[in-house]
Design a protein around this nucleic acid. Structure first.
Ligand SMILES: [Zn+2]
Ligand SMILES: [Zn+2]
Ligand SMILES: [Zn+2]
Ligand SMILES: [Zn+2]
Lengths: 169, 169
DNA sequence: CGGTATAATGTTATGTTATAACATTTACAA
DNA sequence: TTGTAAATGTTATAACATAACATTATACCG
């Protein structure tokens, strides 16, 4: 009998170049609707548009890049509108901000109310994925507690080269 | 026989409110000189001034705050000069940038050529310390390798309340 | 339905952080 | 000393983010 890992403990795969991303995006939007319904918050037009633009890829996108895409058709949306939408999306756990890039990415675990995310950022293709390593989380919690420090929030952003770019290089 | 930890494995202490900080600062400047000598780089006036300003405390300081202190006596230094000094100091491992604060802090391990630092940031007093946890480093390295990712650089910034502020509250 | 409170968005302006491009000066060594 | 590279000066602008206040949309109650 061959031992097989349970799905829940499998190491997540880094997003592949040719994957069906339309599916990622539509799934994300569907989940976002569900989250907002559950939380009795409103996924308004502009908020949905921003979320859709963010989910165009797994590459983090800057606020002003979102803005220029919003205004591509001659719109006149102001920066603040984008930042307000981003604030809403982050408050509702739908989007994360990457401090090392000043950019935003869709949350891969909507509704799971994880507030502390760890990221892998490929410096070659830009693709970014959440790490979600329990051992890492434990090591971090332990190291911090050992120093008498109490955690509010954390940022873990790891920059490097993703498996696909390594293979291609 | 009471077991005592070896000094090298002792958990570093978070900077205490009343400590002799003048000593921290002078030590830091002395080490910085040594590092620059060893690396055959020059700790020029402006670079030293910026480093001294950064070492005024264990609270990270913004580039424009450094700038205004430099210009406090009627100077006319431009922002770019500060950024160039910061770039030099970071390249030489004398200063770190905190992405979550857009601020800079003196490196606690000058000359040890550690390029990956982890930080604890007190949201109450602002005091920030390097974590340098080997288990955390291992967990991180392992989690990343497991996903076929190769690391270039990493950011670990943990925000919370330091032991002294907890005690005071 | 109509009124009212709250949430969301619009509008304008400004604050904050960081870099580009090119000129000039300084340090150092051949 | 004189050529060269490093450092700094000067001016302008890019990139990221928020303040303050007006207006509009939404939901909820009577
Ligand atoms: Zn996808
Ligand atoms: Zn890649
Ligand atoms: Zn000190
Ligand atoms: Zn504190």
């Amino acid at each position: 009998m061959t031992a097989r890992r349970k799905p829940s403990t499998e190491t997540p795969v880094f997003p592949k170049p040719g994957h069906n991303h339309a599916r990622c995006a539509s799934e994300a939007l569907r989940k976002a609707e569900a989250v907002c319904t559950a939380r009795k918050t409103r996924l308004t037009d502009i908020r949905r548009q921003v979320l859709e633009l963010i989910w165009q890829s797994h590459v983090p996108v800057g606020a002003y890049e979102i803005l220029s895409q919003l205004n591509a058709g001659g719109g006149r949306t102001a920066p603040i509108a984008v930042y307000r939408a981003l604030e809403f999306l982050m408050d509702n756990g739908l989007v994360h901000r990457l401090a090392s890039l000043n950019a935003y990415i869709g949350c891969a675990h909507m509704g799971d109310d994880h507030h502390a995310a760890q990221f892998l950022i490929c410096r070659t293709c830009g693709t970014t994925a959440e790490l979600e390593s329990a051992p890492l989380k434990r090591a971090l919690t332990h190291a911090v507690a050992e120093r008498g420090f109490s955690i509010d929030s954390q940022i873990v952003e790891i920059s490097g080269v993703c498996p696909h770019c390594r293979a291609t290089a």
